[in-house]
């Protein structure tokens, strides 16, 4: 399995120091505060598949995306692309080769494009950075192709980002990501800032590109319906950890972790009109997470063991679940 995996993440941890400034801390005798945004994540993605991370805000899913992309330096753990370790990589040339094969699409269609650059320059930036064009003519040709590929016209390259709608900007963002000829795309909530009718266009575009180019996606979203539409595998995150990893079909047919069950119950039902059960409570402060299983204060199946002991991921058929209740066959 690991030969096919394009991305492998092993025990990834990303801690942020969110303490008050040193002087204030010493004067008020405050302890050091560490935000464990990502606390021991292990998963892998097979070439050509879409792996999604889903969870509520503050669960650390975006931090995972940014850490894998190399925008944060991981506190510990390993990130392997095609078996090559990204975290320990010191040599610049090989790092740059790995970086070229991995690109990212961001959430905000507004903040992700430099407002002072023409669209053709925005899209050409990665081409220039990696020297992928033989000459100016070649570069122009590549940019024109990319614009066509994402459903825009080559003439749009002359314009500035503000002349486009949110959906079109997201297309530009995708074109930029594709310009370094990546194999692996990290998509951090790429449609959550868009209107639904436009969201469908962008999701379809991404599906088509995956087919045409054989792309692998790491997809981050809070929207379960979108996740269900795009994913092959799904990881459910809660407070910096994965509580369940399953194939898509399993997750929606047979959710195992109590948190997953709760999430599924809160999805608004368009057609049936059944009332959804409001979930109790809210996500706790990640700086001060509950002991043991972080979900236990909201969990109907929690026992004394759950408050004490942190459950680990264990396999059940295709799925892996981190839950004492599942382990003890109470649910």
């Amino acid at each position: 399995m690991s030969e096919q995996a394009i991305l492998e993440v092993r025990d990834l941890k990303m801690y942020f120091d969110v303490s008050k400034p040193l002087v204030t801390r010493l004067m008020n005798r405050l302890p050091k505060h560490v935000l464990k945004a990502v606390d021991g994540l292990t998963f892998s993605i097979k070439r050509g598949e879409t792996f999604s991370l889903v969870g509520e805000s503050g669960c650390g899913k975006s931090t995972v995306a940014r850490t894998i992309a190399g925008l944060n330096a991981a506190t510990s753990g390993e990130i392997l692309i095609d078996g090559k370790n990204l975290t320990g990589q010191k040599e610049k040339s090989s790092l740059s080769d790995i970086a070229r094969r991995m690109q990212m699409v961001f959430q905000s269609p507004y903040a992700s494009l430099d407002p002072r650059w023409r669209v053709r320059d925005i899209i050409a930036e990665p081409i220039r950075a990696y020297g992928l064009a033989d000459n100016k003519e070649d570069e122009r040709e590549q940019v024109a192709q990319l614009l066509l590929q994402v459903g825009l016209s080559p003439r749009d390259g002359e314009k500035y980002p503000h002349e486009f709608s949110g959906g079109q900007r997201q297309r530009i963002s995708i074109a930029r990501a594709l310009s370094s000829k990546p194999e692996f795309l990290i998509c951090d909530e790429p449609t959550s800032a868009l209107d639904v009718s436009v969201q469908a266009q962008i999701l379809n575009l991404m599906t088509r590109l995956q087919d045409d180019l054989g792309l692998t996606y790491l997809f981050i979203s809070h929207d379960l319906a979108v996740i269900d539409h795009v994913s092959d595998w799904i990881g459910v995150m809660y407070l910096g950890r994965i509580c369940e990893i399953t194939p898509k079909s399993e997750l929606f047919r047979r959710p195992r972790h109590p948190y997953t069950r709760m999430l599924l119950e809160t999805i608004p039902d368009l057609k049936g009109g059944t009332e959804r059960k409001p979930m109790e409570g809210e996500v706790p402060n990640p700086i001060n997470p509950p002991s043991g299983c972080a979900f236990h204060p909201r969990c109907a199946f929690a026992t004394e063991k759950c408050t004490r002991e942190r459950p680990v991921l264990k396999g059940y058929d295709m799925a892996k679940v981190a839950c004492h209740a599942v382990e003890d066959m109470r649910i």
């Binding site: 991995m102 992700s112 963002s173």
Partner: peptide
């Protein structure tokens, strides 16, 4: 994020 995009390509 346009800065992140630039960082991403080294």
């Amino acid at each position: 994020d346009y800065i992140a995009a630039a960082k991403l390509i080294q």
